[in-house]
Design a protein around this nucleic acid. Sequence first.
DNA 1: CATCCCACTGAGCAGATTGCCCAGCGAATC
DNA 2: GATTCGCTGGGCAATCTGCTCAGTGGGATG
Lengths: 157, 157
Amino acid sequence: MAIDHLDGRIIVLLAREPRIGVLEMSRRLGVARGTVQARLDRLQSHGVIRGFGPQVDPAALGYPVTAFATLQIRQGQGPDVRAHLATVPEVLELHTTTGNGDMLCRLVARSNADLQRVIDRVVGFDGIVRASTAIVMENPVPLRVIPLVEQAAEERG
Amino acid sequence: MAIDHLDGRIIVLLAREPRIGVLEMSRRLGVARGTVQARLDRLQSHGVIRGFGPQVDPAALGYPVTAFATLQIRQGQGPDVRAHLATVPEVLELHTTTGNGDMLCRLVARSNADLQRVIDRVVGFDGIVRASTAIVMENPVPLRVIPLVEQAAEERG
DNA sequence: CATCCCACTGAGCAGATTGCCCAGCGAATC
DNA sequence: GATTCGCTGGGCAATCTGCTCAGTGGGATG
């Protein structure tokens, strides 16, 4: 879906001040309330904006350690491994990938020691042949989309 | 910070129906409005809930290809590389890690061909020695926190 | 045992926002 | 020329928010 400049401003504004209302947005953007409303509806129905769920910080929840694990899967065991990993709360994200590994997953843990427990639980499953883990030290660029939104908006005026 | 069972229910409810108001939440949870209000304020001020920004889907924006790149950095060039990567909109996330690579970043692109352009831009910087990229095929577990929240809430009744 | 502190309840209030409707208008399309 | 579409600007009732207050119960403290 193509994003327009106004759409971009709406998303950016919403990202900066999430608790802002439609009315206040229309004032800031200098357009009618109905317009903002319509744009928002369109963005949501097209899936560009998935939702406004709370962004929870695992670190603040007591899980300050993040790691990425690359998994190698035994042929044909993919579905089982997926199902297994989905049951582990500390697995925040799972992707199947090309390249050296077959899967890449993001893990969190209460401490480096606790990470061992998590990894044991993750790899303690038959279909997983090998796992290599990289612990995250710093996070210079936290998950962001705004620059991408701005770029997409530029391209369409 | 420790999460309570009520806190957990608030977060889960909020994740399920983000547009819900404080009043409606208090009705659903069977507690007073002020209580929900206070809990929310506490969760936010403690950083457990970072905010309610819109969750944008890069795929819907025209960037359906996701990849993870592992970068090896020349000694001492870390800060420069970070700054460089921060300027690339397609870099959604950047971590410094232990292990084989020095950094891990999440990229998106408009197509596999476009991914080449993005990677060129990412690695077209002096401090980067080597990059290995894994393209994401499937995403069986999209970024999630709810199971973790539920686990954290359980531990505190 | 008496006290204090804290969190929760239930209520009220003014002010603001929402969802919804409508008529008019200009530009692009057929 | 006619139609469609998106935006404007206005109005309405219903709802929610932010804020305040007094009362209550449990737990910790003296």
